[in-house]
Amino acid sequence: MMISGNALLREIVATTLQMAFSSSLLALLIGVPIGVLVANSNFHGKKIIVVLMRTLMGLPPVVVGIVIFVLFSGTGPFGSLRLIYSVDLMIIAQVCLIFPIVAGMTETFVSSISSPILETAKGLGIGKLKTNFLTLNESKYQIVAIYLFAFARAISEVGAVQIVGGNILHKTRVMTTTIALNYNTGQFTYAIALGIILLLIALGVNLIASLLQRRTK
């Protein structure tokens, strides 16, 4: 019983980590370039885009979950992809949820530091693409922090993954959905134990990140 319990726990933790690392990394890869580009360019309607980005940062996970569910369910436009109730779709839902946060945080930070960078680069005749990379380089430290936030959001999120993943045992069950299930069935001790493991994982990731940050300083 104990052994199978441990095996199950390991499986759930593994699925959780796979999901959280994938979705936070993808959200970073999509969100950071958007944030840098918006911050560094001047175009008509930029203010509207920024407001939109900041609004999307507050997307409720449940709503994202429902929308993705509808899009990918059997009768939805992407139904033929057969992704419903899969870890892949959980990742897609989380990326939708998290990349606007990454983009918004990146835009806010880059806007606060960009003016001397843009001025200097322009004065040297450096092109836009290279200027964006230079800006990125100046933002390394902050981007690690933004990544941590994205990861924390991914690993602790339950609303969207519950809906599109369905909390299926041995397939899409992750720590948060297990905790919710245990709570519903009254197994509080197990729920809290899982919560503590989740926190420990977050702590581990944070420790690695702060080592990384120290090297970028």
């Binding site: 001397p116 001025e119 200097t120 004065g123 040297l124 005749g125 450096i126 230079l134 380089n137 100046e138």
Partner: peptide, 24 residues
């Protein structure tokens, strides 16, 4: 005309001094 400009507040990129110049 190739225009070069040095702003009032000089900026050092966070990379080596050598690379700061190479990037130009």
């Amino acid at each position: 005309t190739a225009v070069g400009f040095m702003p009032q507040h000089s900026f050092g990129f966070s990379m080596s001094v050598l690379n700061n110049i190479m990037l130009a």
